[in-house]
Amino acid sequence: MKRTLNPSFPESMLQTARNAYDAVRRITQLPDAYFIRGDAKAFAALLRLKDVHKGPACPSSSATAPA
Rank of each mutant, 00 (worst) to 15 (best):
M1D: 13
M1I: 12
K2N: 12
K2Q: 06
R3D: 05
R3V: 06
T4R: 12
T4P: 02
L5G: 05
N6G: 02
N6F: 12
P7E: 09
S8Q: 13
S8R: 02
S8T: 12
S8C: 12
P10Y: 00
P10A: 06
E11H: 07
S12R: 15
M13D: 05
M13C: 12
M13P: 00
L14H: 08
T16L: 13
R18P: 04
R18D: 13
R18Q: 15
N19V: 10
N19Q: 15
A23D: 07
A23I: 08
A23K: 09
A23E: 05
A23G: 03
V24P: 00
V24D: 09
V24F: 05
R26D: 15
R26H: 15
I27M: 15
I27H: 14
T28A: 14
Q29W: 06
Q29D: 15
Q29M: 12
L30K: 13
L30T: 08
P31Q: 05
P31C: 06
D32I: 10
A33W: 09
A33L: 06
Y34Q: 10
Y34R: 06
F35N: 01
I36Y: 03
R37L: 04
R37I: 09
R37F: 00
D39V: 02
D39C: 04
A40S: 03
A40Q: 04
A40Y: 07
A40R: 02
K41C: 01
K41E: 10
A42P: 06
A42T: 13
F43I: 06
F43D: 01
F43Y: 11
A44R: 08
A44L: 08
A44H: 03
A45Q: 11
A45G: 05
A45V: 06
L46D: 02
L46A: 03
L47D: 04
R48K: 13
R48P: 03
R48Q: 04
L49V: 07
K50F: 05
K50P: 01
D51M: 06
D51S: 04
D51I: 02
V52Q: 04
H53T: 10
H53V: 08
H53I: 03
H53A: 05
K54Y: 08
K54I: 02
P56A: 11
P56Y: 04
A57V: 10
A57L: 14
A57E: 15
A57R: 11
C58A: 11
C58S: 14
C58L: 11
P59E: 08
S60W: 02
S60L: 12
S60R: 08
S61K: 14
S62K: 08
A63C: 02
A63S: 10
A63F: 11
T64Y: 10
T64Q: 04
A65T: 05
A65E: 14
A67D: 12
